[in-house]
Amino acid sequence: MPPTRRFRLIPGAVTVLGLLLALGVPAARAHGVRTEVLAGPTSVVTVTHDDGSPLADTPFTVLAPEGAGPFLTGRTDAHGRVAFQPDRPGAWKVRVAGADGHGAVVTVAVDSAALAAPATGATVATHHAHEHDHAHDEAHVHADAHAHDHAHDHDHAHTRDRWSGAIAGLLLLLLVLGVGGVLLRRRRG
């Protein structure tokens, strides 16, 4: 490639990639799937698109630890939720899958303490690990002002995670290809 063309390529590429990132990262929030798990006497798995819209009316299967056959099957509710009452401790699996290939397989770790907890007790885990310094209970499923604030904070944190992940991935990609280019150049002398 002539040197002048190579020098035109770099600022052009930076501009195009920057614009695509600015457009792509917020838009990508609607394509991925995230999950939230409340493990307890009544365990709830909530599956949403990255923009918070639920995977509603999507088929799910709950598989018990070392169980033969599904423990429960059905379709997610309007909020993308699956609720079930585990009858033994262990790693429960919840598979939510649409025919278009969108979905997730989530492990719900239920221990004896969680099973013995009062019906309102639950522990929360999300696909993206954030600190939860307050106890959630099943009122979590009711929309109230706190839940809205929490969801709002959650979305912001998720967008930050998505941005940092996307940029880190881009830099890693360019690093790998850059190292590959240097090695190739050395090999060719």
Partner: peptide
Amino acid sequence: VTAAAYVLMLVA
């Protein structure tokens, strides 16, 4: 071009 493919895949 590889980086562009990576970024384009982020656009839903």
